[in-house]
């Protein structure tokens, strides 16, 4: 009875997963970030009940969990759509067209930042956000759907993508695994990949990624040859 009352949202399987996360770390509290991802995989956002769930699993106060949950942008306060579309509008992507992409999608969906078009969670519902630099600048402007990359976007391409998502299609990302939904992505962020081995083969190397290596190959450039038997230095004297 000191334990939190039985949660209706978070079942035993989720509690088991929470415990599995805790087991990964030398100290339990380290599990909090992945556990909040786990909460999102169940609810599509971090609800008060989700906060209570984490607090209960980790013996923290709800204030302590709230302090963490509200610090990070990936933890959503309101239920997300089936898909989360994040458009990079940091300077470089923006200069290459990111701002335009974002405003195109905004107009199309009729929502603003961190808002959802459609009933959250239902098929075709989409949460839109502008994101900070997504570490794909050489492929800019980029956007992500459920954190899978869609590179070298234009307003037209992005609009096509979003319309497809709305109609229930799941166009393949440029880099990443076959598209699922926001909750599935969150489950993987929590570190659970069961049954999704094929995801690994989703493409990752865009031409840009390989550019330097390929130019070097073409031109016969290389790092200096590795010596056959490099020696370790002598053991330094103990001071």
């Amino acid at each position: 009875m000191t334990q939190a009352p039985e949660s209706t949202t978070f079942d035993q399987a989720t509690a088991d997963r929470a415990q599995a996360i805790i087991a990964r770390y030398p100290q339990p509290r380290s599990a909090l970030l992945p556990m909040l991802h786990l909460v999102q995989s169940v609810e599509g956002y971090v609800s008060q009940e989700g906060i209570r769930f984490c607090a209960g699993q980790l013996d923290l106060t709800e204030a302590e969990v709230s302090a963490v949950a509200t610090f990070y942008t990936m933890y959503k306060r309101r239920p997300c759509g089936e898909h989360l579309v994040s458009v990079c509008t940091n300077t470089l992507c923006a200069a290459l067209g990111g701002d335009e992409i974002y405003s195109t999608l905004k107009n199309h969906l009729g929502v603003g930042h961190d808002e959802t078009a459609g009933e959250p969670g239902t098929p075709g519902s989409i949460t839109l956000e502008h994101a900070e630099c997504l570490a794909a600048c050489d492929l800019g402007p980029v956007l992500q759907v459920n954190y899978e990359f869609y590179d070298n976007q234009t307003p037209e391409k992005a609009l096509g993508l979003v319309k497809a998502l709305q109609s229930g299609e799941r166009p393949a990302p440029t880099r990443g695994a076959p598209l699922t939904d926001f909750k599935q992505a969150e489950l993987q962020l929590a570190g659970f990949f069961e049954g999704r081995d094929a995801d690994l083969d989703g493409p990752s190397a865009a031409p840009e990624t390989l550019r330097g290596a390929e130019i070097a190959q073409e031109r016969g450039w290389d790092a200096p040859a590795v010596p056959a038997n490099a020696e370790f230095p002598a053991l330094p004297e103990k001071k």
């Binding site: 106060t61 204030a63 302090a67």
Partner: peptide, 17 residues
């Protein structure tokens, strides 16, 4: 606890706690 981040950072309590 501190809630939120950056310029929105604020002191607060958990909901109903």
């Amino acid at each position: 606890e501190l809630l939120e981040r950056g310029a929105q950072q604020q002191i607060g309590v958990a909901q109903e706690k």
